[in-house]
Design a protein around this nucleic acid. Structure first.
Length: 615
DNA sequence: CTTCTCACG
DNA sequence: ACGTACGTGAGAAGT
């Protein structure tokens, strides 16, 4: 047995690393006792984050309580792997920090289904997000193991990730190669692997106490654990990549980027991504660049360049000036290279051997509780064009379904702020922006007036003022001000609710309590954001509830992605109608009497088919 | 590491 | 007193 000791919060703790059969027997004996006493913390060490890439390895599996950790070298296989599997079968309650990752690792590489682990798991990262969802940069504690340990357990708890980077270097390894290359006998690696579970075991009871002190309901935590399981199943399933199409697209975008970069070079710009170079060259051609960025640099963004290229924000020709050929070349070169590197190439880099992409779904990423998707960021694929979404396919003999909520944040606002006339419009089945335009401008409102009414609706949800609404809608300032005043007369409850929420937050530690009991910390100098936080967060929980409804209806196997107010699903072509109706049923329910509505659209094989021409 | 830019809801 | 657009992820350049 290898044994290491360390001091955590003044206590001497022990990390054991079994080396033979006798050691494993001691582990089994410890486990029996510890499992009787309380939950067991679990963690894994692997070769990286790309669980589905070829050559990926599970290296260590750690178990522990507040004082003792057992680090099992899974990679040695045989009786070591069997000891891990036996432990995972019998442990009654598991504590995992960021459980989705370890569930998926064990599911894929230890053949322990996540369906076994999930019902027994408490995720200390989820509990942390329910206490304070902010990242450290935002003034919060943060939800990583390191900041939580430092805050709740021991200010001097080692930063095990950063500490290992130093060890990697001393062994001639890098941050990238270290996790795969470090020997399973390296003492710091083994000690830190053990400390992570000891810290997790120590954090959980403190978090429970804190959640209880703050009055956070148990149901909210249970709901988040359910959502994590559902999203883990989505991540495990992954999405089919049209590899051939993506390769061709990748090549075509590379050629396009090269062609337009060469064009830009003719005007003296040898790097289209250098804003300084582009600005200088444009100024040399007689263009006047007046806008500046926050830090005072000349602004040369897409909007500025499109103006010079005589194109609208939708890239349509305007015919109001002679297009500047450099502006056009820079726009096209930058778009082609961004779409290639951010999307097409990343798809090819992350696809598994079976041709599927497994994006990481972070179920509680944003401070409002919104989810995010990374590696690749499938929530942010271009929607103006089907080019990129065309790369992603429904399964064989299946079609894509995209089910969207109808104006969900406005409906949530109507419900939360009890906006009477808005509720009447929704209950009457009216188009909200039509209704608002009629109320503000009269029944014969113009198209531009409807656009302004819609802009003001967004402005209200985001907390924007006349200036921003003017910028976004392009309407004359006087008209914007007048319409804003009329809007407040039609829906007086919005202003009142916002003022009330801000007042309550100031009185209770700058935290807004959402409809689901979520704690939403406000920034002292932008308390107006509370309206947005309340709407965005509740809309997120509406999506979460819909996903749980879908899970209960047996639809999880079809789900592919959550996209804020939309779910993407892949369903058997011959059952598409039936499943689409079922998805809609799961997404439709009342929120404080206000109906939340959704519509499912059936596409073809590719996601792109839902955006424009079918394939 | 910060800034700028750009993709989404 | 007044007014404030919200939330993300990612790549590239420049310090």
């Amino acid at each position: 047995m290898l044994t290491y000791r360390h001091t955590i919060a003044g206590d001497l703790v022990t990390v054991h690393v079994p080396q033979d059969r006798d050691d494993l027997d001691l582990f089994a004996a410890w486990l029996t006792e510890a499992d009787r006493r309380g939950p067991i913390a679990l963690d894994t060490e692997t070769t990286g984050l790309d669980i589905y890439s070829p050559g990926y390895r599970l290296r260590l599996v750690q178990f522990g309580d507040a004082d003792t950790a057992w680090v099992i070298p899974w990679e040695w296989g045989g009786m070591f792997a069997e000891a891990v599997r036996a432990a995972l079968r019998r442990i009654r309650r598991l504590l995992i920090h960021n459980a989705m990752f370890d569930w998926l690792v064990l599911d894929r590489h230890a053949r322990v289904p996540l369906e076994w682990l999930a019902p027994r798991t408490t995720d200390t990262k989820i509990l942390a997000a329910l206490i304070d969802p902010r990242q450290p940069q935002e003034g919060g504690i943060g939800t990583g193991l390191k900041p939580l340990s430092a805050y709740w357990v021991d200010r001097l708890a080692p930063d095990t990730q950063a500490g290992l980077t130093a060890v990697f270097r001393s062994l001639g390894l890098t941050k990238e190669t270290g996790w795969a290359g470090i020997p399973l006998t390296e003492p710091t690696y083994l000690l830190y692997a053990g400390l992570d579970v000891i810290l997790t075991a120590r954090i959980e009871p403190i978090e429970r106490r804190e959640l209880s002190r703050l009055g956070v309901r148990r149901e909210l935590s249970d709901y988040e654990h359910e959502l994590a399981r559902i999203c883990a199943v989505m991540q495990r399933r992954g999405i089919v990549l049209d590899v051939e199409h993506t390769r061709r697209l990748d090549d075509a975008l590379a050629a396009e980027a090269e062609e337009f970069a060469a064009e830009a070079a003719r005007y003296g710009v040898d790097n289209v991504n250098s804003t300084a170079q582009v600005a200088d060259a444009l100024a040399g051609m007689g263009e006047s660049l007046t806008e500046t960025t926050a830090s005072g640099a000349v602004k040369v963004d897409k909007a500025v360049l499109l103006g010079m290229a005589d194109m609208s924000l939708q890239w349509e020709p305007l015919g109001v000036r002679t297009p500047n050929p450099l502006a056009t070349a820079v726009l096209r070169a930058k778009r082609a290279s961004k779409w290639r590197t951010t999307y097409a190439s990343t798809f090819l880099d992350t696809v598994d051997a079976a041709g599927r992409i497994h994006p990481m779904i972070n179920t509680l990423q944003a401070r409002t509780g919104r989810m995010s998707i990374t590696r690749p960021a499938l929530q942010t694929l271009p929607s103006s064009d089907q080019m990129i979404r065309r790369c992603l396919l429904a399964d064989e003999d299946e079609v894509m379904i995209s089910a969207d909520f109808a104006a969900v944040e406005m409906r949530v606002l109507a419900a939360l702020a009890d906006v009477k006339r808005m509720q009447e419009a929704i209950l009457g089945g009216r188009d909200l922006h039509d209704f608002t335009a009629a109320m503000v401008f009269g029944p014969n409102f113009t198209k531009a007036q409807r656009k302004l009414a819609k802009g003001i609706g967004f402005g209200k949800v985001y907390g924007g003022g006349a200036d921003t609404i003017q910028r976004q809608t392009g309407a004359p300032m006087a008209e914007v001000r007048e319409a804003l005043a009329a809007y407040d007369r039609v829906y007086p409850e919005i202003k009142r609710a916002s003022a009330r929420w801000q007042r309550e937050a100031r009185a209770t530690g700058m935290v807004h309590l959402s409809a689901t009991g979520r704690r939403l910390p406000l920034d002292r100098d932008r308390t107006y954001a509370v309206t947005n936080y309340a709407c965005q967060s509740t809309a997120r929980d509406v999506l979460g509830q819909a996903m749980i409804n879908m899970d209960e209806a047996g639809l999880t196997e079809y789900l592919r992605l959550p996209i804020h107010d939309e779910v993407l699903a892949s369903v058997p072509a011959d059952r598409a109608e039936e499943i689409a109706r079922e998805i809609e049923r799961c997404m439709r329910f009342p929120l404080y009497g206000v109906p939340i509505d959704a519509e499912a659209e059936i596409g073809g094989r590719s996601w792109g088919s839902l955006y424009g021409a079918d394939y």
